[in-house]
Each structure stands twice: as C-alpha cells, then as structure tokens.
Simulated scan of single mutants.
Amino acid sequence: MELILWRHAEAEPGSLELADEHRALTPKGQRHAARMGAWLERKLPADCRILVSPATRCVQTADALGRRYKVVEALSTASSAEAIIEACGWPTHRQPVLVVGHQPLLGDVASLLLCGQKQDWRIRKGGVFWIEHKASDGMPYIRLVAGPDVIGKLR
C-alpha cells in the first residue's frame, strides 16, 4: 500500500471572527498547492483514493490537484493519528491513498507507521510525506519527503 500524506498549504491566520475550519489558503498557499498538485497529478497512480479533511484550507489544497476526492470527517483537526490510519485502511488496502490534512496529525501518522510510536515529526505546509508498504517486506518505508519549494526540481 502507498500512503501519501499532503499537508495543506499556507492558510490565513486564525482570528476570533473566523473559525479555524474556515481558514482559507493565502495567495502563497494557493501557489504552493498548485505546484504540488501539478507534480502529484503526474506521479500519483490513476487508482489513488483521495481523502480530505473538511477544513476549507484542505479542500482548497485538494482542489489544486484537479481529481475527485472524498471529504472525510476522520481527517479533521479534532481527529487522531489512529483514526486517520483506520480511515485509510492501512496497511491492508491495496489501493494507494492520498490524505490531505493537518499538522501535527500527519506527522503523528508518519511516525506511528514508521517507528511504532508518535513522535514530533513535522511536515512542512504544502509538503508531502510518501510512505510505501509491501506485504512481502513487512516494513513500511519512506518513498519521498518534499516541500513545495523543491518539488519543481523533481521530475
């Protein structure tokens, strides 16, 4: 199974007037989401399932990919790494999964899958953390970690 964790791109700051789940991407965040989305569109398998947090900034980040996706409440900011892993069907689901979500949850997911415990791993805004698991190996491994600033250099 392949699990691609994509942290939402830069969003506007929180405020008393704007609920956290309604924060939108900044112009810089829109550019980074578009850059990463274009790269992912070329690299993702055609059958990749795309699961997205209901937060506006995550939906906008996923929109930059240009593929159909499913908004999943289990990926919200109030979720847990365990709930996200379960929603993905890790590791038994054969279909690749792209998750568009939040920090620190995505870092928790990556560290839990790769180390067996949650650690303070950070994924940059707009960045991806690509994990692969082959049943024949038994152990997951890191396939790619990249931010939107360097993704254009990866062909």
Score class of each variant (00 low, 15 high):
81 A>R: 03
2 E>T: 14
24 A>S: 13
44 L>G: 03
104 P>D: 07
10 E>C: 01
90 W>C: 10
116 G>P: 06
105 L>M: 14
51 L>N: 05
34 A>R: 02
137 D>L: 15
103 Q>H: 13
78 A>K: 09
92 T>H: 13
142 I>S: 00
114 L>A: 10
105 L>T: 13
77 T>W: 11
151 I>Y: 08
151 I>F: 05
141 Y>H: 13
102 H>C: 04
105 L>I: 15
51 L>Y: 01
50 I>N: 01
102 H>A: 07
6 W>C: 02
19 A>L: 12
3 L>M: 05
116 G>F: 08
134 K>A: 15
148 P>D: 13
134 K>R: 15
105 L>C: 08
79 S>I: 07
131 I>V: 03
99 V>F: 06
133 H>L: 04
151 I>D: 00
56 T>Y: 02
113 L>I: 11
139 M>T: 12
101 G>A: 05
66 G>C: 01
91 P>A: 02
129 F>M: 01
30 Q>Y: 09
90 W>I: 07
79 S>D: 07
132 E>D: 14
119 Q>F: 07
108 D>V: 05
95 Q>E: 12
26 T>A: 08
51 L>F: 00
63 D>G: 08
23 R>I: 12
55 A>L: 03
59 V>A: 04
77 T>G: 15
57 R>T: 00
4 I>G: 06
47 D>I: 04
154 L>F: 04
108 D>Y: 03
144 L>I: 03
147 G>W: 09
17 E>V: 05
32 H>W: 13
52 V>G: 05
99 V>S: 04
59 V>P: 00
25 L>Q: 03
120 D>M: 14
94 R>W: 04
5 L>P: 10
64 A>N: 05
108 D>P: 02
141 Y>L: 11
5 L>W: 00
15 S>Y: 07
39 W>L: 01
21 E>M: 09
5 L>Q: 00
71 V>F: 09
99 V>D: 00
88 C>A: 14
23 R>Q: 08
131 I>K: 07
148 P>V: 02
62 A>W: 06
135 A>V: 05
149 D>P: 11
109 V>F: 01
24 A>H: 07
84 I>P: 03
49 R>I: 11
14 G>Y: 06
102 H>P: 03
30 Q>M: 14
84 I>T: 12
153 K>F: 06
128 V>T: 07
95 Q>P: 12
120 D>E: 09
138 G>S: 09
60 Q>I: 02
88 C>H: 06
78 A>S: 11
70 K>Y: 14
